[in-house]
Design a protein around this nucleic acid. Structure first.
Lengths: 132, 132
DNA sequence: TATTAATACGACTTATTAAGTCCGTGAGTT
DNA sequence: AACTCACGGACTTAATAAGTCGTATTAATA
């Protein structure tokens, strides 16, 4: 409950690592260095590549490197890249009101929406470069 | 990922309901009114009663009522009462460093700790009475 | 004092989501 | 051509959340 997924965790670790080494790096390197399951990390990095947060190079001397500076990468963009959408703290914020039986007399959605916004701006303002 | 549990959701709904009606209320009443599974809600309310957020009365005209004013009940205290502990946004914050293989060269824990603190103060400052 | 309607609480089952694995494909370098 | 990397879908396993069930306890009241 209320945890970031391992995928996001791994993604942040990988990005931070790439920011530090500043050369092309392979998923395997990062996986062994931090003892992260390779297959899982590989997919996470593929998603980061798809959204242009990192740039991939195939082939024998291939790997990944950051597309830009680490202080332009927000944690929010990483979450979005990996999870596909911004998670909502309660179901109705996350998925909409469709399968909510009480939206008529729901008393908690509005205030939790504020919490949600607060949370989001925290993640937007937090850059990968700050992850020291 | 990153959602409050249904139990917490139900707890907040129940508390808000009790704040509104201001008389002794049963779990059954709330369950039927909001279409919440009775057994689950009952246990949630028992936990709220154990931590003295609400007061329980057994017996035939029994039920629950708020122990105090709704603006003295923080969402954080509700989470804590129901979940038993304050959830951490990543495993090492939630459970400690025991089963973390990279704590030596972890690059993400400290900044996420700030996010965690921010989050917690949001939940501490948000009172059940504000849940309008 | 028997009945009834409520809470209390542990054990259990089911459903959902997260985490991890496997396997074949495609790409670029040497 | 061979090697080593990324790519990506399908699948399995593990973990957690959600929900259910059974039984005990408590107190009002007829």
């Amino acid at each position: 409950m209320f945890k970031l997924s391992k995928k996001v965790e791994y993604g942040l670790i990988a990005l931070r690592h790439m920011a530090l080494v500043d050369t092309i790096t392979t998923a395997k390197e990062i996986a062994t260095h931090y003892q992260i399951p390779f297959d899982l990390l590989a997919k996470v990095m593929q998603k980061l590549a798809k959204t242009k947060i990192i740039i991939s190079h195939q082939g024998i001397r291939g790997g990944y490197k950051l597309a830009g500076s680490a202080n332009n990468i927000s944690v929010m963009s990483v979450i979005q890249a990996i999870e596909g959408h911004i998670p909502g703290i309660v179901q109705c914020i996350d998925e909409g009101l469709e399968n909510c039986s009480i939206h008529q007399n729901c008393t908690i959605r509005d205030p939790l929406h504020k919490v949600q916004k607060n949370l989001e701006s925290t993640f937007i303002n937090l850059k990968v470069s700050e992850i020291v």
